[in-house]
Amino acid sequence: MTLTQFFQNVLNGLSIGSVYAIFALGYTLVFSILGIINFAHGSVFTLGAYFTYMLTGLAVGFNGILATTRLPFALPFILALLVGSGLAGLVGVLIERLAFRPLRKRGSDRLLSLVSSLGVAVVIVNLIQYLVGAEAYSYRSDPFGLGQPTVNFGTPERPIPVRSVQLVIFAVSVVILIVLTLIINRTRLGKALQAVAEDTVTARLLGINTDRLILFTFFVSGFLGGMAGTLVATSQSITGPYFGIAFGLKGLAVIVLGGLGNIPGAVVGGFVIGLAEAFVPSQYVAYKEAVAFALLFIILLIRPQGLLGRVQVQKV
């Protein structure tokens, strides 16, 4: 492997990894507070991308029951991105109220919330198809106004090109990571969240309004999911109602690898899997899909708390 190839692989890995990371951030956030996997996260990610699409004033296709409708106004892309993510956040809140809270209030098995979140995912995916059809959608070209499609990290003779949108996604995922970490470690809100994550009942006894905090967590998770969906869609377009579902499974591997519920871990896990996939030799590329899961299997057997996770004391 030449040096150029090596750097190209590293950059490719980081580029793929940043998509995994940005997907996984909202995913792992809910786990960190509630200890449950929200299977509906992939569909909120998809919804966010569709919301932004509608908010930029573009019309839907011919195949859903909303055929050819468009909103009466058009927002600039960045504003649409923020409003769209906000709407996705509200969907997150709605999911918590309708599918998670009733179960939590009864003290039901945590596995049940896995199933009900899955039911929500089925509803959202099929609702999207029912309303706007299965076709692909894309934003107006170059929504960030980046100008050039690639940035060359090599020399003109030995180019190491990286797509500009990927750089944006990379930057945003790092920024979100920093902001989230700061909120959780430096603010009262963050301390309260940590308390809820540690022990919900005790937190409530200490006077923390746990329901409101959990609602807030779902809002943030949905917001991040919707934003991630839009960002990934600027890179790959919205490829249909299953757009985000495709990330769900690999997202699982990512958040476990980094340590379930560990926020920096989600980003590290994303980059590790991205890099591992990028370095699969080309003759074995058919097995690339298995890399994330082989890593997952191995890490579970030797270090179940994940790369960055702490060993949890088994509560008996």
Partner: peptide, 23 residues
């Protein structure tokens, strides 16, 4: 039309309701 093309929407809803009403 909802039963035919939106059949999976209903299916998903029933799963959510099922977990809530039949924990």
């Amino acid at each position: 039309d909802l039963f035919l093309n939106g059949r999976l929407i209903i299916f998903g809803l029933l799963i959510v309701l099922g977990t809530i009403f039949f924990p």
